Amino acid sequence: MSAKILCPTDGTDHSMVGVAKAAELARLTAKPLRFCVVNIAHGGVKGPTISHWTPEQVREILDLAVTKAKGCGVADVDGIELIAREPGPAIVAYADQEGFDQIVMGTGDKHGIKRLVLGSVASAVAGSAHCSVLVARAS
């Protein structure tokens, strides 16, 4: 089994909680860490497919995550863009295809009864991933 960590991020505060946890785990275990940004594809069929973020925005999100991880002492870290219509299945498929043994991701700051439920992407990933999933909740 390979030993590497995948961390999806979209640059939001709650996803950065996942970035911090993934960096901590990668540093403690000396596992390689890869960040991914799922750039949601809109349109298609009869019109052009339009990505949610520009290439510059994707690079900015990935650079932020990589910089944070390197600042935490992670040596083996990089990032990749995934283009898909649904982020959850795209993350799971990529993790399976590339042999990741851990997915670490953040979930949104929820209050009250909603705090008992994961965000939809985190829930989709945790419910269908072939490997362990650590969901870090923003406080």
Rank of each mutant, 00 (worst) to 15 (best):
Leu116Phe: 12
Thr107Gly: 06
Gly43Gln: 07
Gln97Lys: 04
Ile40Leu: 02
His130Asn: 15
Lys4Gly: 06
Leu82Pro: 01
Val58Thr: 10
His52Pro: 00
Lys68Val: 10
Val66Met: 06
Ala138Asp: 13
Thr29Tyr: 09
Gly119Leu: 07
Ile40Cys: 00
Ala124Met: 11
Val135Ser: 09
Phe35Leu: 14
Leu64Arg: 13
Val45Asp: 03
Lys31Gln: 14
Lys110Pro: 00
Glu86Tyr: 08
Ile113Arg: 15
Gly43Ile: 10
Gln102Pro: 10
Gly71Lys: 14
Ala30His: 15
Ala90Cys: 10
Gly88Tyr: 07
Ile50Lys: 15
Ile103Cys: 09
Leu64Val: 05
Lys110His: 14
Lys21Val: 06
Gly79Ile: 03
Asp13Gly: 11
Cys7Met: 07
Ala136His: 07
Ala129Phe: 09
Cys72Ala: 15
Val117Thr: 11
His111Pro: 03
Ala122Ile: 05
Glu56Thr: 14
Cys36Glu: 08
Arg59Cys: 04
Ile103Leu: 05
Ala30Glu: 15
Gly88Met: 08
Asn39Asp: 13
Ser51Tyr: 14
Ala136Met: 11
Val45Cys: 00
Gly18Tyr: 01
Val38Pro: 04
Gly112Asp: 02
Gly18Ser: 06
Ile50Val: 15
Glu24His: 08
Gln97Ala: 10
Glu56Leu: 14
Lys70Glu: 13
Gly18Arg: 01
Pro87Asn: 00
Val74Thr: 07
Lys46Asn: 04
Trp53His: 11
Thr9Val: 02
Lys110Glu: 11
Val66Asn: 02
Glu60Trp: 00
Ala26Val: 12
Ala122Tyr: 10
Lys46Gln: 06
His42Trp: 13
His14Ser: 09
Val125Gln: 02
Gly112Arg: 03
Leu25Ala: 02
Leu116Glu: 11
Ala122Pro: 11
Ala124Leu: 11
Val92Glu: 01
Ser132Lys: 05
Leu6Trp: 00
Asp96Pro: 00
Ala126Asp: 07
Gly79Lys: 04
Arg59Trp: 02
Ala65Glu: 06
Ala69Pro: 07
Val92Asn: 01
Ala129Gln: 06
Pro32His: 05
Ala138Tyr: 12
Ala26Leu: 05
Pro87Glu: 07
Ile113Asp: 15
Pro8Asp: 03
Ala126Cys: 03
Ile50His: 14
Pro8Cys: 03
Gly11Ala: 02
Val66Lys: 04
Gln57Trp: 00
His42Phe: 13
Ala136Lys: 02
Ser51Ile: 04
Gly11Glu: 00
Arg59Thr: 11
Ala95Gln: 01
